[in-house]
């Protein structure tokens, strides 16, 4: 019996997995199903879809999906679109370490500190507006905080480095000889990008987009601190938080969390589904 198991790969060493697996099941899988179950037991009693019906019939609640998408989709598109040309240049640098280190800083500091910095820096009397007025680039201070743009900018500041570093890791996986081969065959820079680099990068970009989108979609502290959490930036995580910790309606909060997860999974599944239609293989040249 023991030998038969060992032959299939189960032995003492495999047992080392057990604590970690049990941990993830207990604190990730179980809470998820617990929350799913809880969402069907509304606070008002009974069993059913009452929470979901309430969410989709109350504009104050269902609008949060649209508001979150209005932030997450453009920010993610922007971050991905900028990441690609920057990563293509950084790939050619001899020592990119300083740049990548600087870009890791906002990710490490996190959204809360970036929010506090932005309140100072982008505020009506902050350095940015002062510079704009000083150089005559603007007549009046720009309103960049406590509105949509505050949250947007914070998602760019913490999101762009994340998207960029992911993109960079995919870009550096493309064999530089392929681009040289294209050049030798007469392809100009744009043609090399369009015909060689982009098709090889797309699968990685799809994953980058998904991860960046999921992060942006779950925006929380900056929506509260830099946005208008009662208005344009009342994002879905704010709604979930309010339900749980201000109204103490855990079933409703769980329902919102489930809806949040479904939207994320839906968009990711759609993108990855589309990606499976593209070339998926090694991005190196020749035998890999």
């Amino acid at each position: 019996m023991r030998q038969a198991l060992a032959r299939r790969g189960f032995d003492g060493v495999t047992l080392l997995l057990l604590p970690a697996v049990l941990f993830v099941i207990a604190l990730f899988i179980y809470p998820f199903f617990y929350g799913l179950d809880l969402s069907f037991h509304p606070k008002t009693g009974g069993v059913g879809l009452a929470n979901y019906i309430r969410f989709f019939s109350d504009p104050f609640l269902y609008d949060t999906i649209g508001k979150t998408l209005m932030l997450a989709v453009p920010v993610t598109l922007l971050n991905v679109a900028f990441s690609v040309p920057v990563a293509l240049r950084v790939r050619l640098m001899a020592k990119p370490r300083l740049l990548t280190t600087i870009l890791v800083i906002p990710i490490t500091l996190g959204t809360v500190l970036v929010a506090e910095g932005m309140l100072n820096y982008f505020g009506p009397r902050g350095w940015l507006n002062r510079a704009l007025l000083e150089f005559g680039l603007s007549d009046a201070p720009l309103h960049l905080i406590h509105n949509y743009w505050g949250v947007f900018l914070s998602l760019v500041i913490t999101g762009f480095p994340f998207t960029f570093l992911l993109t960079l890791s995919y870009v550096t996986g493309i064999d530089p000889a392929l681009e040289r081969a294209g050049a030798m065959l007469g392809a100009r820079a744009w043609e090399r990008f369009k015909l060689i680099i982009l098709p090889l990068l797309l699968p990685g970009l799809a994953i980058t987009f998904c991860l960046s989108f999921v992060q942006a979609f779950s925006v929380f502290p900056s929506a509260v601190l830099l946005g208008a959490p009662a208005g344009v930036t009342r994002v879905i995580s704010v709604a979930a938080y309010t339900a749980a910790f201000e109204e103490y309606d855990y079933p409703m909060a769980s329902a919102i969390a489930m809806i949040m997860a479904s939207v994320q999974i839906g968009i990711v599944a759609a993108l990855l589904g589309a990606q499976s239609l593209l070339y998926r293989g090694p991005a190196g040249g020749g035998k890999g």
């Binding site: 065959l185 293989g281 020749g286």
Partner: peptide, 13 residues
């Protein structure tokens, strides 16, 4: 010019 690369550099896609 034509060029043949050491690792062939064929476009994998």
């Amino acid at each position: 010019f034509g060029m043949v690369f050491q690792n062939y550099a064929l476009f994998p896609h």
